[in-house]
Write a protein that binds this DNA or RNA. Structure first.
Lengths: 154, 154
DNA sequence: AGGCTATCGTTCCAAAATAGAACTGTCAAA
DNA sequence: TTTGACAGTTCTATTTTGGAACGATAGCCT
């Protein structure tokens, strides 16, 4: 597989995987959602090598997930801030956190709890149908080929 | 980072990433949700090397995402079927597909359309709060430390 | 001025993961 | 008896990561 052109495949999952489909990228995004913005911040909390961190941040900027914003002239320093495109990854991250809570937890309970400021309660993320509002399950979904594809790829 | 113990970290995202945090695994899961079950099926549709496919399938079985079910004696042949734990990954996959649809699409439109059998309509997956049912956005969520952790990790 | 610290990277080499292709083994059908 | 389908394993070359050191810029302290 040519990972460098994965983002041009006729499959939205492939295209997403091209951007966020590796361990470090996902962990970097977690930190971003927890308001980490600076090189040293990512590096020290993740214990990622500086080399890879540099690489991944560049990639995320290139794909428009993070914006590189100067916060100091002299010396030139930048922070990495989620764009709207990056913020839109939230459901993916939350879905992963929730699955981990349910299926990979230990006896001590959840590492983090989430409070919905709007309603004030602790919640779980639930994925629903945009049309009827019902919770979604794999077996209730039927897949059709859409306009953006020719043949037997997903 | 010690990837082999990532699933024991005090962070549900890390634990999920330990299982599905690589390109091939996510693509294999896509095929699983599209009802692919056999070694040759995965191999030919993904163009993954047989070696890696074998490795990844073993890992997914080990983590209880797939079950290895015999479908033929003599010769012994197995298929790989999603367990409930695996089916529960659906929101993650759908969230990724949806993000790809929105942010990585091209002029031709979506590769696939999804129909909700329950209501009969084409839909998008939406992540909502389990308590109030409102759509979730990153900025409306506040994070608290939960019982399963000691200090400053997510 | 000289040296320490903070921040943001780059460079270099060794170790690990992946790609690519060939090979093994079982059995059915031609 | 040969071919083909299926489910892997084994082997080597290439690519990606890990780990640690190095470089650049500037503020602050003495």
């Amino acid at each position: 597989m040519k990972w460098d052109t994965l983002d041009e495949e006729q499959c939205s999952l492939s295209r997403t995987v091209a951007v966020v489909g590796d361990r470090w990228t996902l962990l970097i995004l977690r930190e971003s959602f927890l308001r980490v913005r600076r090189f040293e911040g990512f590096q020290s909390s993740l214990q990622i090598t500086r080399h890879l961190l540099s690489e991944r941040l560049k990639k995320l900027v290139r794909f428009g997930i993070l914006r590189r914003v100067p916060y100091s002239e002299a010396p030139k320093r930048y922070e990495y801030i989620l764009t709207q495109k990056g913020l839109d990854l939230y459901p993916i991250i939350m879905a992963m956190v929730h699955w981990g809570d349910i299926h990979m937890g230990d006896e001590r309970g959840r590492p983090l709890l989430h409070e919905h400021k709007t309603c004030g309660k602790r919640f779980d993320p639930v994925m629903v149908c945009s049309e009827c509002g019902e919770a979604l399950h794999a077996k209730q979904v039927h897949v059709h080929p859409g306009p953006g594809r020719k043949e037997a790829v997903a």
